[in-house]
Design a protein around this nucleic acid. Structure first.
Lengths: 244, 244
DNA sequence: TGCAATTACTGGTATATACCAGGGCATGGC
DNA sequence: GCCATGCCCTGGTATATACCAGTAATTGCA
């Protein structure tokens, strides 16, 4: 910025705050396009690289999303997801008036020996056993919000891949294999979206994420699933109600 | 990079991956200084701004931490914090062989009317009631890892500020006011560290964070605390064990 | 009218350069 | 031996410029 400043904030932050206020005030409404980096630079009398810093800051704050070669847009409000709810993601989205959908990305039968030890050991399998690995993409109103990796012991679910895997897996397991989930132990971590998952979701890797690894036990006390779920932190807010 | 590349990755990412491998391989050990941006630029034949992009990426990955005007250093391994554990942060750190400490940043008595409505309403207070607001900084081996905001209804805890607030507040409440926590409802969100908290912690605002808002109820079914805790996502990994 | 080619614009990457403020260290005076 | 001065290095900010690849609107031809 050409002029002097009262606060000692760097130019890119000042501009970011100004635009952030416009967004919060509703001058720029969700899904609307914000001015291009070059226009911001000209409007505020800063260089494009500085304007880019401004846009970076806004992305980082979760207020806008970038679309390569198209522009930057005001972000939709975050979707609430209650991790402690009995209801699954699908059901919670539906209740919130958001259209949930899933896409089966991959379904493979893999020898336990070729698997990541973390997974085969978690499922307590010998090397010659095999594992079913499903990757599903979860969407909300058509927008990718999560990737779910599910690992099932092959011996428990013969011919699993022959079933319709696009619907609820848990319903399927109960219907055809009489396996009902009872308890689960989960471990969560805040990370950045690994490129692997970002590619599946079709988004940039520079967004925060919540990763959850879960071991699910059936009512028969059998460990029947190891799940590794990756949720976008920029589109979801996570709620966890605990009563202790 | 001057030379052509096999992968189509941008230069700043390639260099970042190379340095990341050096860190993971132990060539660069925790707390050791990585080369300065200018040195990286020269070493890999890239410009300093590109080298800066590399360092940004590494910071974002949580592999290194920056220290203004001093350099960038390989980050310490993340500290595990079990959110679902009965043990508090202090106890968990101690068990992990890390020295926990706290610092009282501020302790104020504030009219409920002047408070953020989210808080006064959560505590179910009229505008003329008052609220105690404590801000505490939590450290692990001297490093700031969390900021805790605690809000207590004034009527429940007369003269709260006269007590020693540097120790465990819950122990104090039980000892002097016979208030024992029983249940809590909490709401967590992944964000970026707001400048406000970053300043208290003495770190940059460009790091991920976990914010938890908690309503704590006593054994007498009285809502006695609204807490707003902010944890550094770059120094902590959060575990949550659920058995349902 | 229909469709292909052009063009303007976008974010992403990269370079070269410049200045600032503060930490760390060597130097030099006392 | 002590301490202050000053220099070098650091990350942080900022400018100006350039090229790329893909989108989207426009243009122009058949």
């Amino acid at each position: 910025m050409a002029d002097g400043n009262i606060t000692d904030q760097p130019a890119y932050r000042q501009v970011a705050e100004h635009i952030a206020q416009e967004i919060e005030a509703g001058v720029l409404s969700p899904a609307s396009k914000i001015p291009s980096e070059r226009v911001i630079a000209h409007k505020y009398g800063i260089s494009r690289m500085t304007a880019r810093g401004t846009v970076n800051k806004l992305v980082q704050m979760g207020l806008i999303v970038r679309r390569k070669r198209i522009g930057a847009f005001v972000a939709q409000p975050k979707i609430r997801f209650d991790l402690s709810s009995r209801a699954g993601l699908h059901e919670q989205l539906h209740k919130a008036g958001i259209e949930p959908s899933s896409k089966l990305i991959s379904a493979k039968k893999i020898p336990a020996g070729k698997m990541n030890p973390e997974i085969s050991e978690a499922l307590g399998l010998s090397k010659k056993a095999y594992i079913f690995h499903l990757i599903r993409l979860r969407l909300a109103d058509g927008e990718a919000i999560a990737v779910e990796n599910s690992y099932f012991p092959g011996n428990l679910f013969p011919n699993l891949l022959k079933y319709d895997l696009t619907e609820s897996i848990y319903a399927l397991l109960e219907k055809y294999f009489s396996v009902k989930p009872s308890r689960s132990t989960q471990n969560m971590e805040i990370t950045f979206l690994a490129k692997q998952w970002a590619d599946i979701m079709g988004v940039s890797a520079d967004i925060p994420a919540l990763e959850i690894k879960r071991r699910a036990v059936s009512t028969d006390d059998i460990l029947f699933e190891f799940a590794h779920d990756i949720y976008r932190g920029d589109r979801l807010t996570f709620t966890s109600k605990t009563t202790e």
